Computed example of a mutant assay.
Amino acid sequence: MNGNQHYQRAEELLAQAFVPGLTKYKETDEEREILVHAAHAHALLASAAATADTKRFQAAYYEGNGEEPPTRAARNNRTEANAAALAFLENDK
């Protein structure tokens, strides 16, 4: 399953748990609880898949532009941005 399919499955499970009139609607709280837990698991998997897709997109973006992704040290070194933000805050007083 991909992220979109996990998300759709989570929605289906929640509908089965809480929407009366559906053919697979669950009557008891215990049955609903099982469906809610399963929906939660699918929602977490959808979130993980979205995160992985974002990382692949970022890698493809840099590759498509002929650039190397910034190193971890470069991403964490934001002293210029921090200094500009502090200066702005100081001038705002």
Rank of each mutant, 00 (worst) to 15 (best):
residue 2 N to L: 02
residue 3 G to W: 00
residue 4 N to G: 05
residue 4 N to D: 03
residue 5 Q to S: 15
residue 6 H to L: 01
residue 9 R to M: 13
residue 9 R to Y: 07
residue 10 A to D: 09
residue 10 A to W: 02
residue 11 E to W: 02
residue 11 E to R: 14
residue 11 E to I: 01
residue 12 E to S: 05
residue 12 E to H: 05
residue 14 L to T: 03
residue 14 L to V: 03
residue 15 A to N: 09
residue 15 A to L: 11
residue 15 A to S: 07
residue 15 A to I: 03
residue 17 A to C: 06
residue 17 A to F: 02
residue 17 A to W: 02
residue 17 A to H: 02
residue 18 F to W: 04
residue 18 F to R: 04
residue 19 V to N: 08
residue 20 P to S: 15
residue 20 P to E: 13
residue 20 P to T: 14
residue 22 L to Q: 09
residue 23 T to M: 11
residue 24 K to Q: 15
residue 24 K to H: 08
residue 25 Y to I: 06
residue 26 K to G: 07
residue 27 E to C: 04
residue 29 D to H: 06
residue 29 D to R: 08
residue 30 E to F: 02
residue 30 E to S: 06
residue 31 E to R: 07
residue 32 R to P: 00
residue 33 E to W: 02
residue 34 I to F: 01
residue 34 I to R: 10
residue 34 I to A: 04
residue 37 H to R: 12
residue 37 H to V: 02
residue 37 H to I: 03
residue 38 A to R: 09
residue 39 A to Y: 04
residue 40 H to N: 06
residue 40 H to Y: 05
residue 40 H to L: 02
residue 41 A to R: 13
residue 41 A to G: 07
residue 42 H to C: 05
residue 43 A to K: 12
residue 43 A to T: 08
residue 44 L to R: 01
residue 45 L to Q: 03
residue 45 L to F: 02
residue 48 A to E: 00
residue 49 A to W: 00
residue 49 A to C: 03
residue 49 A to N: 01
residue 49 A to M: 01
residue 50 A to L: 02
residue 52 A to S: 10
residue 53 D to C: 02
residue 54 T to P: 04
residue 55 K to G: 13
residue 56 R to T: 07
residue 58 Q to D: 14
residue 59 A to C: 09
residue 60 A to L: 09
residue 62 Y to K: 12
residue 62 Y to I: 13
residue 62 Y to R: 14
residue 63 E to Y: 10
residue 63 E to C: 05
residue 64 G to D: 12
residue 65 N to A: 15
residue 66 G to T: 12
residue 66 G to H: 08
residue 67 E to G: 10
residue 69 P to T: 11
residue 69 P to L: 13
residue 70 P to T: 12
residue 71 T to S: 14
residue 71 T to Q: 08
residue 72 R to E: 09
residue 72 R to K: 14
residue 72 R to V: 14
residue 75 R to V: 11
residue 75 R to I: 15
residue 76 N to P: 00
residue 77 N to W: 04
residue 77 N to E: 06
residue 77 N to T: 06
residue 78 R to H: 08
residue 78 R to P: 02
residue 80 E to V: 14
residue 80 E to H: 13
residue 80 E to W: 14
residue 81 A to T: 14
residue 81 A to M: 10
residue 81 A to W: 09
residue 83 A to F: 07
residue 85 A to G: 04
residue 85 A to S: 10
residue 85 A to Q: 09
residue 85 A to K: 11
residue 86 L to N: 00
residue 87 A to E: 01
residue 87 A to W: 01
residue 87 A to F: 06
residue 88 F to P: 05
residue 88 F to H: 15
residue 88 F to T: 08
residue 89 L to T: 05
residue 89 L to M: 14
residue 90 E to H: 06
residue 91 N to Y: 05
residue 91 N to S: 12
residue 92 D to C: 10
residue 92 D to V: 15
residue 93 K to A: 15
